[in-house]
Design a protein around this nucleic acid. Structure first.
Lengths: 202, 202, 202, 202
DNA sequence: GATGAATGAGGATTCATTCAT
DNA sequence: AATGAATGAATCCTCATTCAT
């Protein structure tokens, strides 16, 4: 029965997402996973190793959720790009909905203190594809650079989910899509609008 | 000498911003503040009271930085609204730059666990004015609701600062302004653009 | 295949000699012995039973190494006694050399805490013959009692081996023999010397 | 009240002497010292630091007990040397009697694993003077080298004390002195006897 | 019989909080 | 008022022992 590792990872993710790394006691995780404390230490060398594996695990699921099967957006046609973005946005929404703990945990701030190099590599492996895509899409135009756009978009999405979690708003699919459409204008601001809350143009 | 309270608050903010609530030991804070541990407990009932006061203190400084002296944006003219937004954005930027610890701390996720009601009221006292303003500005249009827009904007800004802190990008004033201009389109997407990186199209 | 017991005893002796009883983990012993932890517990009831058996085993090997085949020293002639002593000394040296772990382990101090009665009997079964022999040899004379002499001699030998192990000196066979000769004078001090580094004086 | 450090050191010495390093729990030491566990950690960084300080402390007391006020034995007259040795032996006896825990602890075997460099220096600072004295005294003769003689003597004394502790014999001052006299022959074997339980010369 | 995964009591260490000075 | 030494509950982690396979 080696899904025990899996079970522990899941329990740890939930606990860390809820109370943070320092706010979570190892035995809490073990109990939530339904195993003895010592058992947890058979699978993970120590608390720090555990949080790193939780991090990488969640991050890789995020990457898969976003990128697997998405056609490389080597598109120079704007509406294709827009559809690509809409797809990403939809996938993000799905991820945040189906794996709220993973999403919340990944967005916590104080990771830096305990993440190891391996985890940092995983971190970059998610960003890099987006960045490259953005590069092709955006670099010719004026306005903010690709890094800035990505940061804004990512932050906007995170802010949306966080606001929902804190109860400041309630999101249905429609609103999520509208939000994505609004955000698209961050990417392609100075071009004729091609979509959004009802443009006559397709 | 009652600026001792002030000194402790500042030291605590820095520590909490850096290592989080659970990652920070009370004696660390006391030492950083240059007072005895016992002294800290004369000013703050316990660690939780301390973090709540730090939170409110920082949040109120943020509110002041954003709102004090900003003319009530009871404006129905779009360019006035845009200027109002640009002003807010600029102020946010200034705050994030001059009080990075405060900004970082306020954006940490795991506050909910220990914030008390009083702190939550303060939280709302910052959002409310923005929300009201947005309400007047936006509600007539279609597209995302005001809550969503505010969440997106706030998140976008936070994402920008966080990316900068993590070293993913470097921001100068120009870029910050451009970012703000881009974000403005989240607010007023389906209206003729009136500003920004100057598009030939009006 | 019941040499498994033997293998475990050997592995345990090495571990206990190196790190002491409390410093040695049972699974370490099992792994060093190449058996499963559970298996070890089939052969030994618990850690304490194990250490007791290790102790008795080692002690009995020491006894055998010292006493088996040594003619009962029912000698009243002094040079016969000296030869008997020299033989014991040589055997001790051989034992310490061929079974350094056994020797080291047996000399550890903190045995008392966990040795059981059976082990204590074994302990005595080694000393008794020596004591009896010494008795016949020495008791008529003045000077230290037999107990004292035995304690001194045994301690002297242990001290020699320990010093060697700690690197304070290096021993070859010649030096070991000389040391034995010197120690003989502890036994027969006030009698004319009959051997040793050759003195011209009788 | 800074004898708290002293009290902890004493309690720790007793516990370590009785049950060894690994067999002693830190809270046991704290309780024996009559302080809280946390207090112990204010005075000693961790268990290993504690045992090292206990070691150095005991070793230095031993050194003082042996060497302080002993006239430098730059003696080439044999009877002066013998008196010097008798004095050392007497002092050793006194130390073993008044500080049995210190003596026992210092003779434990498994120190090597946790002693730090500073402790090892202290170790040598006790041996060195003896070795130098022995050097002058002995090197001209044949027989065992100085290192060997020292190891034998030290071991003999330790064996004596250990035998007493284990109940194999009981020592009074007279017997201790006789034992010392016997041991002197280890040092000066091939010379005419000048003292001991039988000298015509005073 | 053999195994080693699982367990939880126990050990080392930290830290929020108190209180004598 | 200010301090920081003292405390012990709580934390991380280990390891003797069991038991299902």
């Amino acid at each position: 029965m080696d899904d025990k590792r899996r079970i522990i990872l899941d329990a740890a993710l939930e606990a860390f997402a809820e109370r943070g790394y320092h706010g979570t006691a190892v035995p809490e995780v073990a109990e939530a996973a339904g195993v003895g404390t010592g058992t947890l230490y058979r699978y993970f060398e120590n608390k720090e190793a555990l949080v790193n594996e939780v991090y990488r695990d969640a991050k890789q699921r995020l990457r898969a959720a976003l990128l697997v099967g998405v056609p490389d957006p080597d598109l120079y046609r704007l509406d294709a790009a827009e559809m690509w973005f809409a797809e990403l946005w939809r996938r993000l929404g799905t991820f945040a909905k189906t794996e709220p703990d993973a999403f919340r945990f990944l967005e916590m701030q104080d990771h830096v203190a305990y993440l190891d190099n391996k985890s940092r590599e995983v971190e970059l492996s998610v960003l890099a594809p987006l960045w490259l895509a953005g590069k092709r899409l955006r670099d010719r135009s004026d306005g903010p650079s690709v890094d800035v756009i990505i940061a804004l978009l990512w932050g906007a999405f995170v802010g949306l989910i966080k606001a929902q979690r804190l109860g400041y708003l309630r999101l249905d699919d429609k609103q999520l899509e509208q939000a994505g459409a609004a955000c698209w204008r961050l990417v392609a601001p100075d071009l004729p609008r091609t979509r959004g809350p009802r443009s006559k143009k397709s």
